[in-house]
């Protein structure tokens, strides 16, 4: 990489880290949403674009991640930031359990099957008094922390989630797993024949995507200080992730970056239009699938190939 590029990235990162001293609380809270939703869309895109597995019920991991954090922190009076790794582990364990029925299904059946998972988990939480049932749980351990530190701390956590998840996915795709994934995506039978353990590859991907989503969900709900089953296990999360990935470009690392920018731009400008805003979002997704299934990134690179992340593999 050219040194000017590295310098530009360091400056950008420096500005992002310094944001709590520059911007107000509203900006920080918006950026928490941007980074967490980016990570969720990245995880969805990792599954769909690189593993060929669509999860319509990915929001199940948002709820599990958020509830893990709230339950551990509130009931034992522990620092919420220290509980984030625990939330990741718990989400991954649930994902492992869920893999048992889910990987009996393929393609479209897998997609809707994950939705059943999200529903059954939501109903279970809704009926669990020890998790606060329908009213949900507050994050009472945030009480003693000053407003500035709380907002800045959550913002830095979200920044770490956004940058960290991109790093993890990038590292995965550059390595052996990335190569195995590409071969599975292109031809599953041929990949299996050349020694790729297809099921194992897909389960690893599923666990990584679940862990990222659970962490992002936990940080997203630190931002609101209250978690409820209907909001955290809501399809709206997955719908936003799908919109971001489809619009930006499924199966590219750049896609979710572009998608998340467009998504928040549209939201900040038009979300006051209520139903019409969602109708337009749905129409944009439909038109993208019809006219440019590769998303915005495919349109940008049609003329000249770009590969800022250096993960494309070419036969030369």
């Amino acid at each position: 990489m050219k040194s000017s590029k590295i310098l530009a990235m360091l400056v950008l990162l420096g500005v992002l880290v310094a944001l709590p001293w520059i911007g107000g609380y509203a900006t920080q809270r918006l950026m928490v949403e941007v980074f967490t939703l980016y990570a969720i869309a990245l995880a969805w895109n990792l599954l769909a674009g690189y593993g060929g597995i669509v999860a319509v019920g990915q929001h199940v991991f948002i709820g599990i991640g958020a509830y893990s954090l709230f339950f551990l922190s509130t009931s034992f009076g522990l620092n919420p930031w220290l509980m984030l790794p625990a939330a990741v582990v718990i989400t991954a364990l649930f994902a492992l359990l869920f893999a048992l029925p889910m990987f009996r299904l393929r393609g479209a059946y897998f997609a809707v099957g994950t939705w059943v998972l999200a529903e059954i988990t939501r109903i279970a939480v809704l009926n669990s008094d020890w998790l606060g049932a329908g009213a949900g749980m507050p994050l009472s351990t945030m009480m003693g922390i000053t407003r500035w530190l709380r907002n800045a701390g959550i913002y830095w956590a979200a920044l770490a989630v956004g940058v960290g998840s991109l790093g993890v996915v990038w590292w995965l795709l550059r390595g052996r797993l990335g190569l195995a994934l590409l071969s599975v995506r292109d031809n599953e039978a041929a990949a299996a024949a050349s020694g790729v353990n297809v099921l194992r590859t897909k389960v690893i991907l599923w666990l990584v995507a679940a862990a990222i989503t659970g962490l992002a969900g936990a940080v997203a709900y630190m931002n609101t200080l209250q978690v409820t089953p209907s909001a955290s296990f809501s399809l709206n999360w997955t719908a936003a992730a799908i919109f971001i990935a489809v619009l930006g470009g499924i199966g590219t690392l750049e896609g979710p970056l572009i998608g998340v920018l467009v998504y928040f731009l549209l939201r900040e400008m038009f979300s006051s239009y209520g139903s019409w805003y969602f109708i337009v979002l749905g129409c944009i997704a439909i038109l993208t699938m019809l006219l440019a299934p590769g998303g915005a990134w495919s349109l940008l690179t049609r003329r000249r190939p770009l590969d800022p992340f250096g993960i494309r593999r070419m036969l030369s």
Binding site: A239, L281, G282
Partner: peptide
Amino acid sequence: DPLSPLLLTFGLSIVIQNLLQE
């Protein structure tokens, strides 16, 4: 590929729900 119809109808689902709501 099997995912394209799925994602397209996902968008359609959101459009129908919100049209009905409107």
